[in-house]
Amino acid sequence: MKPVIQAENLGRVFDNGTVRVEALKDVNFTIGTGELVAITGSSGSGKSTLLGILGCLDRPTSGKYILDGVAVAGMQNRELAALRNRKIGFVFQSFQLLQRTSALDNVELPMLYNPSIPEGSRKKLAMEALDRMGLSDRALHKPSELSGGQQQRVAIARALVSNPKLILADEPTGNLDSESTASVMEILSGLNKSGTTVVIVTHEPDVAARCRRVISLRDGHIITDQIQEPKNFADAIRVT
């Protein structure tokens, strides 16, 4: 199994001159292609910091991070931006959709920064992604006209539109009711089944229980890293 994420002795120190915080210490793990992994931990455990590094939004202060065969540590900001654009799809807790912008335009957004996708095919690709989320009839709606679950599905469409190696979801169900949570989790595990590596950062045991592998953090280092039999969601209600 080819690794998508290789973290070797990752460390991240925040130092503003007066206060020195070691947010991550000596973190080691590998995530292979097609895995569905939950990273859990209470607040302050370092999971957000780890997410920032895994998402190439931040750089470790020590150790090595290799994303899909590319060593991230020494990269320039612009190279990191390109890497995020091509290899990672983000899903956020608060959806992070542009308000007053249609669902379609929101899904199109990452392709604006990818010159290899011709301008003419963007709309079509965005529409296809929305269709996979069962939202083709909502393409021209603005986020304020959509339910929370629908908004998160638009965000997932945006994350997968450029065919990323890795989907990084940061508390993707944190702002959703239980029905929408079930629906979003079903979609994420569905994506995983079709081959995309999915990493979910969460503090909800329910969500973690639905993943095959759970990495738990506390005080900046891994305390457990275990494989489990994920709960089935066959009985979950699909909301469209």
């Binding site: 939004l57 900001n77 931006a81 390109a82 995020r84 654009n85 983000f90 992070q96 957004l109 945006r158």
Partner: peptide
Amino acid sequence: TREIGLRMALGATDRD
């Protein structure tokens, strides 16, 4: 600010 952060996360460079 949030829009800028989002665009950057989605791959916008500082130059963009």
